[in-house]
Amino acid sequence: MLKIEDLHVSVEGKEILKGINLEIGKGEVHAIMGPNGSGKSTLSYILAGRDGYNITQGRVLFNGKDLLEMSVEERAWAGVFLAFQYPVEVPGVSNIYFLKAALNGIRKFNGLSELDAMDFIGMVKGKMKDLDMDEKFLYRAVNEGFSGGEKKRNEVLQMSVLEPTLCVLDETDSGLDIDALQIVAEGINRLRDPERSFVLITHYQRLLDYIKPDFVHVLAHGRVVKSGGPELALELEEQGYAWVDQKVAS
């Protein structure tokens, strides 16, 4: 589904990603862990198409197509979704209108007709219920004044409404209380599908207790320094990242 080859990215002359290689197959769940500042969010923004980065080398293929050539919205239409580490507040745009505009954009691209307003609201309310979100959030401005946890839940709501095929979740577990973590994890698990892949960026094993990854990668200093199975996350939990640094040094 996604193939990242030798990806080098710099910002203002400073190289942040220094040759990332990663391959994600259909239906797989990959966890990416790594110390603060190692480039995890940068990688997620590159996949979503954010401006301001200099891609100096490498390529990214999404279902065989050159992802880096596509505009931000084209990626969304093609099924890429990034749950932001810091979801953006959009004052004056209600959540419901935002969701409808987003979904219709995607449906239009896929040659589907606009969803009827009643059907749409019914569908969204159902998903909110699954995520234990109050319906009043529908009529509030997108993320404005939401608590940290509410914002994260809202990201997962958007994801479940838009039904992307590649879900990149950047620290969606950070800032969630224990109950919320479980609800959100269940929400994500409900979306698991042989046709849908996940990249979970996280600092904590506890998310992976709920969502079992097929692969775990350690990103440090802009490189994938180690890849393995779920046991790698446990190892990191015990030993921290010090040994990663030693490994990079040697």
């Binding site: 954010r50 401006d51 505009s71 931000v72 959009v90 935002f98 987003a102 954009g105 691209f109 838009l162």
Partner: peptide, 10 residues
């Protein structure tokens, strides 16, 4: 960027 990343064109 946020809106576009959800599928709204520019």
């Amino acid at each position: 960027f946020y809106l576009r990343s959800r599928g709204a064109d520019e």
